[in-house]
Computed example of a mutant assay.
Amino acid sequence: MQPRAVDATGVAHEKAGADARIVSLVPSVTELLFALGLERQIVGRTGFCVHPRDKVRNVPKVGGTKAVNIHAIRALQPTHLIVNMDENERDTVEQLRAFVPHVVVTHPQTPQDNHSLYALLGAIFEREQEARRLSDAFQARLDEAASHAFAAQNVLYVIWREPWMTVARDTYISAMLRLVNWQTLPDVQGGAAGAARYPTFDFDHAPWLAGVDRILLSSEPYRFTQAHCDALKRDARVAGKRIELIDGEMVSWYGVRAIEGIAYLLKRAAGE
């Protein structure tokens, strides 16, 4: 049988067949697998794979995205493991590679990469028609975003505290925000020498902070709450800036969630 799809590491994968047993270590991909109609073939997922809520509860947990229970996965006898370059540890994936026949690596870096993600999983698991439907729906959202002329905003997208952390411009999150003309600060590329994709920062030593129009406190991976938001609004270092919570799933989850995510960002940018 000839290979049908190539993953993010250049590995070509053949069609899986109806007896595929899938373990997903990527929350957004788990949701996508259900959207592709693969419910009966998903045998394992992380505790962070929480969508669709009414269906994932029936799938055994195998730890977290990084704290993976290797023995639990071995017991499930998967034929396919879905991982992501950013979310899963390389050493863990290599240990799993020793007994999982097919490891599919994903790495969407821009919203447009969702098209290839749909096609990749659709081809491997013989859900090409479902994948095309998702791709069409996603393209409609991209077209809708492109039809608007949003005022430029410089944003600080905060994903963690103690230490404070944000996102570089070559991350999926930053690319999603650019769809509504929100440009992330600081202006750094995680691929640059010595730079991090998710850099730390200090409110006392961030000269670029003066150029920030709004600060977005994400609901994940750190669960910022209204209390955090209110506390930061009282901080003199960010006086005069718009500070608000944002749904991290809508911005950082690729796959089927990205379709709803663009609609969410369009409403936020329009001030609704």
Rank of each mutant, 00 (worst) to 15 (best):
D247L: 06
E126I: 09
R268E: 13
Y198I: 10
V103A: 01
K61G: 08
E272N: 12
E144F: 06
G63K: 03
G261F: 11
L209A: 03
F125H: 08
M165D: 10
L134F: 07
A119V: 12
I70K: 08
I73F: 00
T106M: 00
L25G: 03
A151N: 04
M1I: 11
D230F: 06
Q129N: 13
T106P: 01
V100A: 01
H71W: 08
G190V: 12
T225H: 04
L217Q: 01
P108H: 02
V251L: 15
F138S: 04
A98L: 15
Q183C: 06
R53A: 15
A67C: 07
H71T: 14
V56L: 10
A8M: 04
A145F: 00
N88S: 08
K66I: 09
G44K: 00
V93P: 03
I246R: 01
I159H: 08
N181M: 04
F203A: 07
M165V: 14
V83H: 01
W182Q: 05
M250W: 04
T9K: 14
A140R: 12
E272Q: 15
L76A: 05
T106Y: 00
A210Y: 04
W160P: 02
G255I: 08
D136N: 11
V104L: 00
H51P: 06
A16M: 00
V11G: 03
I173T: 14
K66M: 09
I159D: 10
N58T: 11
C49K: 09
A195T: 10
C229E: 14
D19G: 04
R234V: 09
D247C: 05
F99W: 11
L134A: 08
I22S: 02
P3L: 02
V59Q: 01
A137H: 07
R97K: 14
V105T: 13
T65G: 13
P27R: 10
Y264D: 03
Q189F: 09
P221R: 11
A8L: 04
L96V: 03
R127V: 08
N84M: 02
R169M: 12
A239G: 05
H228G: 03
G10S: 09
G190E: 14
Y198P: 02
